[in-house]
Design a protein around this nucleic acid. Structure first.
Lengths: 340, 340
DNA sequence: CTTGAATTGAGGTGCGCACGTCAATATGAC
DNA sequence: GTCATATTGACGTGCGCACCTCAATTCAAG
């Protein structure tokens, strides 16, 4: 049988009450008692039964995802994965909910975070671009002992908060490598399209992309980033203009997570099947585009994994445990038509 | 507050004892009672508290991994991941152990499986090639209510047992696509190396590979599979012989999970950096080979994920629950130097 | 209506731990 | 030595459920 707290008390030569005090960091314990209990823990290999702990504490976890208000297919995918996890974890005393707010309004985000009630929420997974205001708000959440996970965005400057997502420099570099190899040494220009270049993610991807291009593929000339600002009309216009001015386009890289609009706009002007096209994130649209060869490769981060990972991290932090790093690392996936 | 079994009894208009009988499939309950309890479950949204269940049952899970006796780096990686999970799950009443046996001896494997004591093991994750004898042994394990997961091997003919691993046809196809695209329409031959072509995995990978080659890359000529039989001397010999006979080799595909020996043997004869080289599985060796350009791409299935997935599935089956399919699907990962 | 079987309810116990109260001791300052 | 304070132990309760026993009730067949 596994040793219980009672066995531990016996082994440590103290009472159950003292064991309890040590295990739960309660006051009124001598250093000596702490030592002898910890020693006994090692000696007899005591492990608290998590089920009993959970039952006795009878505590539930409440976690909240904060998403952008606007988005397209990838955002929808994320929301579905959140719903899925919500359902799967309802039994385990874990309540998940989410809210969508205009994340580009840093002031609004900060205000929302400041207004979160610590009695209603144990952890927040935040998908919003970086800004000093948001950073401050996150720091204050942490001070109030509300755990924060930076979700698929903003991995700088806040080492106190966990981050779930990929290394965007590497993601951009991977895109660059794929485009470089897929174009087969044929000289040409590479069109780069982004929603905005304001965000850290975009900057890092672009940086990784350019680094690889410069180092390994001198035959290609990356063009300046086209910004669509998630505006259909504006995006189409600027893309058409660039396509009109530029001849000899060999490849396209869409570095934002919503590829549908940019790619549709480009496809309306030229034939994508002859170009090396790399986009981000798996959605119904990018899957279909992979299948009919408009897209050659998709760089993806599994949204289901990301959501589950964020939840596990918030749970671990709430329990004052370390998350299992290996499991929480999100892979930069490369999807071809063959490995969908 | 969450409804408890007591609330459920009240809502269903029955006693706690009857609720218990229904919830745990005990005998001596009328269909009417079953109906009214189930109805009440839906109505009030009752969910059993898993912590309380676990505590009351006070049952532990014992799962065993059965691995090949011989192997190289990938096998070592798997064993480490098993140890890791073992440590991480010790707290949750889950005991993991593993054994290594000569899996090519179908009779021996069957005998080992037959000898497993149902009182000591709740589930077995089996990494062994298919054979009628093994299939029978697995079927008998299942009859004795020991859950079986086919681990990274043999996904045919046994739909009663779960399978953890990738679609090997798709994995081979992915390798083919990569080699096809990386060779850039330069005609040439493709060397294909396997440990053995006896196993289902190898056959499926080769089949997927050939399919893509035929359909999409007529400029390449895949050679017959070279079998090393995991024998250093023999492997080197046969590889050297093929390299001597064949000129104009444009690419190499190593389809077994241990790439070190074949690749080292090939590298001793020709310069790999000029070829398109695709291998399977991430190991220290393949990582290093990616970094110094001897290998262009690695097709991988995350061993940590695979191990955790097998455990979750055995656990779910032991509890008579359905595993969460989405989470248990192992991805065919493509690794380049940039997304390691 | 009787009888036997099937069904139901009442109630108790324990799983391992958290958390609280109160009395008993130990420790230190003076 | 005395007193205040710090530490310790004994003990009880409850978390939500599983599992067991025994008596009470219902039901169907004859």
């Amino acid at each position: 049988m596994r040793p219980t707290a009672k066995d531990l008390a016996e082994a440590a030569g103290v009472s159950l009450a003292t064991v309890d005090r040590v295990l739960n960091d309660r006051p009124h314990v001598s250093k000596k008692a702490i030592r002898s209990v910890n020693e006994a823990i090692e000696r007899i290999g005591f492990i608290r039964n998590p089920a009993a702990v959970s039952l006795a504490r009878n505590k539930s976890y409440r976690f909240r995802f904060v998403f952008p208000k606007s988005g397209d297919l990838y955002l929808r995918e994320l929301l579905e994965r959140v719903e899925e996890s919500k359902g799967a974890l309802k039994g385990d005393l874990i309540d998940i909910d989410y809210i969508q707010i205009p994340v580009d309004d840093a002031h609004g985000v900060a205000k929302y975070l400041a207004g979160i009630d610590g009695h209603e929420v144990d952890g927040v997974a935040l998908m919003a671009p970086e800004s000093p205001q948001v950073r401050d708000a996150v720091a204050r959440l942490l001070e109030r002992n509300i755990k924060v996970v930076q979700f698929l965005s903003g991995q700088e400057k806040l080492p106190e908060a966990d981050f779930v997502g990929v290394d965007n420099f590497a993601a951009g570099a991977t895109a660059g490598k794929l485009i470089g190899r897929l174009t087969c040494r044929t000289p040409g220009k590479v069109m780069v399209v982004a929603e905005t270049m304001q965000s850290m993610d975009s900057i890092q991807r672009r940086h990784g992309f350019d680094t690889i291009m410069n180092e390994q593929f001198p035959h290609l000339t990356p063009l300046p980033s086209i910004e669509t600002h998630a505006d259909e009309r504006r995006g189409k216009e600027v893309i058409a203009r660039v396509l009109g001015n530029q001849a000899n386009i060999a490849a396209v890289y869409v570095l934002s997570s919503e590829a549908r609009m940019p790619l549709t706009a480009i496809g309306a002007n030229i034939d994508l099947t002859n170009l090396a096209v790399v986009v981000h994130e798996r959605t119904p649209f990018t899957e279909e585009a992979l299948r009919d060869d408009r897209v050659d490769a998709v760089i993806a981060q599994d949204p289901g994994h990301a959501v589950r990972s964020a939840i596990r991290i918030m749970r671990a932090r709430t329990d004052a445990r370390e998350p299992l790093a290996a499991q929480e690392r999100i892979r930069i996936e490369i999807l071809l038509r063959e490995n969908l």
